[in-house]
Amino acid sequence: MEIKDGDACEVVAGTHKGKSGLVRDVHTSKGGNVTITVVQKNGGRFKTLAKNVRVV
C-alpha cells in the first residue's frame, strides 16, 4: 500500500519507533528512498523513512 499525504500512520521501526501522527511531505530522494514528515498530535514533527511506518 502506498503512503499518501494526510494518512494516519504509526512508526514501527527506527529512531522514532512507537510514535504516530499524520503523513506530510512525501519525498523520494536521489538514492530512491522514500522519506516522509510525520506531524504528531502535539504539533511536533519529524522525518523518517516510509518503510518504517504503517498506515493505521
Results as ranks from 00 to 15, higher is better:
54 R>H: 06
49 L>N: 09
19 K>F: 01
31 G>V: 06
16 H>Q: 10
16 H>K: 09
10 E>A: 12
48 T>V: 08
3 I>E: 03
1 M>N: 13
31 G>K: 14
43 G>I: 02
19 K>Y: 05
28 T>M: 12
27 H>P: 07
37 T>D: 09
8 A>R: 14
34 V>G: 02
44 G>S: 15
34 V>E: 04
46 F>H: 03
53 V>G: 01
33 N>K: 15
21 G>T: 02
7 D>I: 04
3 I>Y: 08
8 A>D: 12
47 K>N: 07
45 R>Q: 12
33 N>W: 10
13 A>G: 08
9 C>R: 00
45 R>K: 15
49 L>G: 09
29 S>F: 09
47 K>G: 04
15 T>M: 13
5 D>R: 15
51 K>S: 15
22 L>M: 14
3 I>A: 07
56 V>H: 10
23 V>T: 06
32 G>R: 07
21 G>N: 04
2 E>P: 11
42 N>Y: 03
42 N>C: 06
31 G>T: 11
55 V>L: 06
27 H>I: 14
53 V>K: 00
28 T>Y: 09
37 T>L: 11
36 I>T: 03
53 V>R: 00
46 F>N: 04
22 L>S: 13
50 A>N: 04
32 G>N: 08
23 V>H: 04
56 V>N: 12
28 T>H: 09
28 T>P: 05
40 Q>G: 02
35 T>M: 13
48 T>R: 00
29 S>Y: 09
25 D>G: 08
1 M>P: 11
34 V>D: 05
37 T>G: 03
38 V>S: 01
42 N>S: 11
21 G>D: 01
29 S>G: 12
40 Q>Y: 02
8 A>F: 11
44 G>T: 10
36 I>P: 00
54 R>A: 01
1 M>L: 12
48 T>N: 00
19 K>R: 12
12 V>L: 11
55 V>I: 14
8 A>L: 15
3 I>K: 05
7 D>N: 12
26 V>T: 09
51 K>D: 12
30 K>A: 14
7 D>A: 06
42 N>I: 03
53 V>E: 01
41 K>Q: 14
6 G>N: 08
9 C>G: 03
46 F>G: 01
20 S>C: 10
41 K>I: 10
